[in-house]
Amino acid sequence: MGLAERRKALGYSQEKLAELLGVDRTTVGRWERGEISPQPCQRPALASTLEISLQEVKILLPPPQAVERGTGRPKPSDHPSAGDPDEMIRREFLRILTVSGALAALPLNEAEALTDGVQRGKPADFARMNGHHP
């Protein structure tokens, strides 16, 4: 028995299951075809909705696989691995853009105070930075 069979046994359409889980209907279809897997945070709700354990969810889900449409053959990965140097550089660049964007949105005196706090590493300064709303 797979995910689709369990869903159908409970009388749920893909659309109804998606609605109950707060995801798109196409996401449920992709789970059932093994194109993607539910995120870890989605699995408890999926288990509860399907009235099974988390371990049973794991068993019902086909292993995710990248399949080229229409051919049934695995396609080359579109995404570099997490350890790929180019991917690491890209993530670091995005992190820098995020931090600099957040600092640019603050008044100058507040940004300078937070920058000093980050360099000192005081938790109160991090809390102020994360809790600031313009």
Rank of each mutant, 00 (worst) to 15 (best):
M1L: 10
M1Q: 08
A4E: 06
E5M: 09
E5N: 08
R6W: 01
R7Y: 00
R7Q: 02
R7G: 00
A9I: 05
L10G: 11
G11H: 09
S13H: 13
E15L: 14
E15Y: 11
L17F: 02
A18I: 05
A18F: 05
G22E: 07
G22A: 06
D24C: 01
R25H: 02
T26E: 11
T26Y: 09
W31Y: 15
W31M: 04
E32L: 04
E35H: 14
I36L: 10
S37I: 05
P38T: 11
P38C: 09
P40I: 08
Q42P: 00
Q42N: 14
P44C: 04
A45N: 07
A47Y: 04
S48Q: 13
S48W: 00
T49A: 13
T49N: 02
L50G: 02
L50C: 03
I52D: 00
S53M: 08
S53Q: 07
L54M: 13
L54S: 05
E56Y: 01
V57P: 02
I59K: 15
I59T: 14
L61A: 03
L61M: 14
P62W: 03
P63A: 10
P64N: 06
Q65P: 00
V67R: 09
T71H: 07
T71Q: 07
G72K: 06
P74T: 09
K75T: 03
P76T: 08
S77Y: 08
P80G: 08
P80D: 11
S81W: 07
S81D: 13
S81K: 12
S81V: 09
S81N: 08
A82E: 15
P85S: 12
P85G: 10
D86F: 11
I89K: 14
I89V: 15
R90H: 12
E92V: 07
R95Y: 06
L97H: 08
S100F: 10
L103C: 00
L103F: 14
A104N: 14
A105D: 11
A105H: 10
L108G: 03
N109T: 11
A111R: 05
E112N: 10
A113H: 06
D116Y: 10
G117C: 11
V118C: 01
Q119E: 14
Q119W: 11
P123D: 06
A124F: 04
D125V: 02
A127Y: 10
A127G: 01
A127L: 12
N130T: 08
G131Y: 03
G131M: 02
G131A: 12
H133W: 07
